[in-house]
Amino acid sequence: MNEVLILLLFMIGLWLLIMDPHVIRKVIGLGFMNNAVVLLFVLRGATAGTTIAILTTGTENIVDPLPQALMLTAIVIGVCITALALSLSYNLYLRYGTFEIDEIRSRTEHDPE
């Protein structure tokens, strides 16, 4: 069930990224995809055991800590990418006053160098 929801989140993100003409919604879509992957890894780690994996004596039946550690890095990278994508979009908005990707594209083609 959880995996299905994660897949749905990923697919919504992918749909927004590819099909939506609005640049900001594309960035949001990318964020959805990123979060879906993060959730997938964390879910996998969390269902491997039941007890926490902090320095305790009985380290049996612990959750897998590795995916969480990895996903911290992935989240940081995702934030960087989002910030950069938003600032690039805003830069284009300042120039053309629109976030519609098709209009931006057609206007860059007619913009002098």
Partner: peptide
């Protein structure tokens, strides 16, 4: 602006493909 748009398109495609790498 052409460079900014090229950079943004590259970002979208490449960042999305790296998520598939992660999968």
């Amino acid at each position: 602006p052409q460079a900014t748009l090229a950079s943004l398109s590259y970002l979208f495609v490449s960042a999305a493909s790296m998520l598939f790498y992660l999968l």
